[in-house]
Design a protein around this nucleic acid. Sequence first.
RNA 1: GCCCCAGUGGCGGAACGGUAGACGCGUCAGACUCAAAAUCUGAUAUCCGCAAGGGUGUGGGGGUUCGAGUCCCUCCUGGGGCACCA
Length: 880
Amino acid sequence: MATERYNAPEREQHWQKVWEEKETFRTATDTSRPKCYVLEMFPYPSGRIHMGHVRNYTMGDVLARFKRAQGFNVLHPMGWDAFGMPAENAAMERKTHPAKWTYENIAAMKGQLKSMGLSLDWSREVATCDPSYYVHQQRIFLDMLAKDLAYRRKAKVNWDPVDQTVLANEQVIDGRGWRSGALVEQRDLAQWAFRITHYTQDLLEALGTLEKWPEKVRLMQENWIGRSEGLMMRWRLAAGTAPAGHSELEIFTTRPDTLFGASFMAIAPDHPLAKAAAEKNAKLAAFCEECRRMGTSVAEIESAEKMGFDTGIKAVHPFDPNWQVPVFVANFILMDYGTGAIFGCPAHDQRDIEFAKKYGLPIIPVVAPKAEPRRGEAIAKIHEGVAFLDDGEMINSKFLDGLSPTAAFDAVATRLEGEKLGGKPVAERKVNYRLRDWGISRQRYWGCPIPVVHCGDCGIVPVPREQLPVVLPDDASFDLPGNPLDRHPTWKHVDCPKCGKAATRETDTMDTFVDSSWYFARFTAPDAATPTDRAALDYWMPVDQYIGGIEHAILHLLYSRFFYRAMGETGHGGSTNLREPFAALFTQGMVVHETYRRAGIEPPQWLLPTEVDIKGEGDKRQATELATGKPAVIGSIEKMSKSKKNLVDPDDIIANFGADCARWFMLSDSPPERDVIWTEAGVSSAGRFMQRVWRLVDQTTEKAVAKDAMKPGKFGPEAMALRRAAHKALDQVARNIEALRFNVAVAQLYELSNALSESFGKSGDGLAWAQREATELLVQMLGPMMPHLGEECWTRLGYNTLLAEAPWPKLEAALLVDDTVVIAVQVNGKRRDELTVSRTAGNGEVEAAAMRLDSVVRALEGRTPKKVIVVPQRIVNVVV
RNA sequence: GCCCCAGUGGCGGAACGGUAGACGCGUCAGACUCAAAAUCUGAUAUCCGCAAGGGUGUGGGGGUUCGAGUCCCUCCUGGGGCACCA
């Protein structure tokens, strides 16, 4: 019988319809069964899915289908992270309403996701921009406000003075607004924040319990929280040098041991002392103003050239009243960290040493290695401008000399704790954290409204619960920059819920990270009248496997960890004291692709891969913009992103090769945690494999035994070899799916396919039965990865059930053990030969056999072995 | 600038501290074909050699070990994050 080619696009639609009609993937809360909650980070509805989504959702789907086959009640939901800037930008650019744009995008992307054949329970779909979702977020917000977990404070924003609007960091390019080109300023604005610092210590300590999180993510979060032990220390300001009302300067330091190496003080440009000094010093004021133009991002501030301005103020050294150090305003000191002021010890801090060199400040080594010549070398290096950061012994430090830095730290702390300045101790020990509270105010339209009212008499008044949700007005205008809510003619004008007088609504909306900080909890009971349903949380939480991009390693994941704690504290958690929402985390690598842009235009105008034509190979590749025929620039390979437009539309592949093909390619080559470069070759290889499986199934129906044939009593060597290969694959595939090592699982399936192909050219006792067994196992193992092909093969193999509902096959563990093993034979660690021995052979027996080998005798060159190391079933190493 | 990660054939990558290069791609040779596609078979790290065999090899340098791609130190290169992109 000649096989027709498997028509993937056509059959995939068929099977998707079958799953939908039978509601195969609908999940109910069923406490009688073990649960498994598999979640992938939900997408931003940009309009089209890209290969990154395909990769992410395929991984989750494989796991969901595998766990379902293993008997778990699997929750695998999907939704939309639907608020955010792009919708508002689209509104400005294309005169379409953000809601319309977003919902159209959702419809389009939902269609695309459905065409991927994901085993999702679509009945649980949520969109964060839907009032039915954000009403609950507003409820949680009010509960957090009542518990003082939400509060208002001043915080800095990027201010575009021309457009009169707040800019996101990504909208600031080289210090200028992306539309207006105006120099951006820092501005202080009253803004809402969540008190994430309330949980600092807990968020830090609980990282230790997250055993199924990647070590690197835990490390990144640990560093982000940034616990440091140090000294809060007050320095007296020399009389007559400081502005009126400023008699001391409070600093935080982690290196009080280096106090005798202090050569300057540095304060942030917006430190109160700097502001006071700037009032009477125009040049200083100008310098501070310049610093404010650096934008608000730490990356910009810290990578800018180190600059300072001597205020003329002097600080008095706590151990020597005659020793005064100058106070500088410096552009690299952040007001948000510690007290916004430091003392600089150039010899033992690289940043300080560069600063000192630039401004001709003294550099005094106070820590050095104990012994020469290393001590001399270290001191010489310091004078060359390389700070000494290692441990050692105190020098040039009076009563600290000879102590270790740790002991010196204690000595300084103890002494200064006992001394007084203005009636209070000069210093106290303090644990400081880098983590700051989470500013959630956004001066934008397309976000969840913050449900409070500002009343002239009553102050901040929460919107009464029965009036929720506070809904975004439909008739906002997007033709101008700035916040459409703020300039809306009527929306913000309301009566105070408390006193009834005219008042105004809060026009800030919430950071979209808030939306994504609890959607996983909402999925467990998406129709509940309250934000969460306790019983559903108790059963489903925590998420058993969370999968998403490494770019979310810090913010989204930390915010979610915080939010789940806050939900517990405000009565929206489960009945257990579960604080961590994600039991296991997997961070997939990104899908990367080249970037293309128009030649000779700044700022860059990016082009989609489909907008360019590429000719040539290797170094001679050249791109042309299709629409204009002009040459385009081929840029670096970067993560696929909307902003760089280096996206590939998976629709083409799904339409031409099938979703299974795209899925298989995404799983095959690259390890899932590593970046994968999208290529066409990989796709065609996957397509070939699909056809190959199809032919193997066909051969099985022709040559192997029929379904449910009696198992033979005797298997010849050919049949045994195939059975071994099949069960070894079954063992390995299960292990590797469980560990999310899909590329290795895929390789096992290739190997099994090779073994099966070869077997069709052979004959032997029981082989026809083994072939059927191997084919069925192959199809069942493929099922989670290529589900449509799996169903089609399953039917062809004679089953009238759904593979998606079939249990995972049982392993015959006895088939995993071979009678003989091949072990390597080394002489002095160098492989010389190999040896096939019985699996149960004793060490002495193996050693003797190894010594008899020609290759070993030759390599020994007559020398007598000193020692022979035998690792059973592994290796023999002869040492001479 | 700070924090984190990665580096293995022509390419993507395998490899409990124990035979480096599984598996896939590509390439070459062959079979089938009027021809092509598809499919099948074989070869394929590199250097010396007709071969047998041997040397060298996991970004560079050093170390621990009987044995290092794997552990330690150090350097180089590439990537991610840095609090208003999501």
